Simulated scan of single mutants.
Amino acid sequence: MQVALCLLIGLLILALPASANPTCVQDDTNQTVCVQQAQRVLVLAPHLTEIVDFVGGMSKVVAVDGSSNFPESVNALPKLGNPWMLSAESILARKPDLVLVWQSGISMEVVAQLRKAGVPVFVSEPKKIEQVASTMRRVSKLLGTERASARSVEEWMRQFKALRAEYSGRAIVPVFYQVWSQPLMTLGGQHAVSEVIGLCGGRNIFVDLPNLAAQVSVEGVLKRKPEVLLASGSTRDHQGFLKQWAGWPQLPAVKLGQVYTIPNDILVRNGPRLIEAARLVCDHIEQARH
Score class of each variant (00 low, 15 high):
residue 8 L to K: 04
residue 8 L to A: 12
residue 8 L to T: 02
residue 9 I to L: 15
residue 11 L to T: 10
residue 14 L to I: 05
residue 17 P to G: 03
residue 18 A to D: 13
residue 20 A to K: 13
residue 20 A to F: 08
residue 24 C to S: 06
residue 25 V to L: 01
residue 26 Q to N: 13
residue 28 D to A: 07
residue 28 D to M: 13
residue 31 Q to Y: 10
residue 31 Q to M: 12
residue 34 C to L: 02
residue 38 A to K: 08
residue 46 P to R: 02
residue 46 P to K: 03
residue 47 H to T: 04
residue 47 H to S: 08
residue 57 G to Q: 01
residue 57 G to R: 03
residue 60 K to C: 05
residue 65 D to L: 06
residue 66 G to N: 06
residue 68 S to Y: 03
residue 70 F to W: 11
residue 73 S to I: 10
residue 74 V to M: 04
residue 76 A to D: 15
residue 79 K to M: 01
residue 80 L to P: 04
residue 81 G to W: 06
residue 82 N to H: 09
residue 83 P to H: 04
residue 85 M to S: 15
residue 86 L to D: 02
residue 89 E to G: 09
residue 90 S to R: 11
residue 91 I to H: 10
residue 92 L to P: 08
residue 93 A to I: 08
residue 100 L to I: 07
residue 101 V to C: 09
residue 109 E to S: 13
residue 109 E to P: 10
residue 109 E to K: 15
residue 111 V to E: 00
residue 120 P to Q: 07
residue 120 P to S: 09
residue 125 E to M: 15
residue 127 K to V: 02
residue 127 K to F: 05
residue 127 K to P: 00
residue 137 R to P: 00
residue 138 R to P: 03
residue 139 V to P: 02
residue 150 A to W: 03
residue 150 A to E: 12
residue 155 E to Y: 12
residue 158 R to G: 09
residue 161 K to M: 14
residue 163 L to C: 09
residue 171 A to Q: 15
residue 174 P to K: 06
residue 175 V to R: 03
residue 188 G to Y: 02
residue 199 L to A: 06
residue 200 C to K: 00
residue 204 N to A: 08
residue 205 I to M: 05
residue 206 F to V: 01
residue 209 L to V: 14
residue 210 P to Y: 05
residue 214 A to Y: 06
residue 216 V to C: 14
residue 218 V to I: 10
residue 221 V to G: 00
residue 222 L to V: 02
residue 228 V to G: 04
residue 231 A to G: 08
residue 236 R to H: 15
residue 241 F to H: 15
residue 241 F to P: 11
residue 243 K to H: 15
residue 244 Q to R: 14
residue 246 A to D: 11
residue 259 V to K: 01
residue 259 V to I: 12
residue 261 T to I: 06
residue 262 I to V: 13
residue 263 P to M: 03
residue 267 L to C: 13
residue 270 N to P: 13
residue 279 R to N: 12
residue 279 R to V: 03
residue 287 Q to E: 00
residue 288 A to I: 00
residue 288 A to C: 04
residue 288 A to K: 00
residue 290 H to D: 14
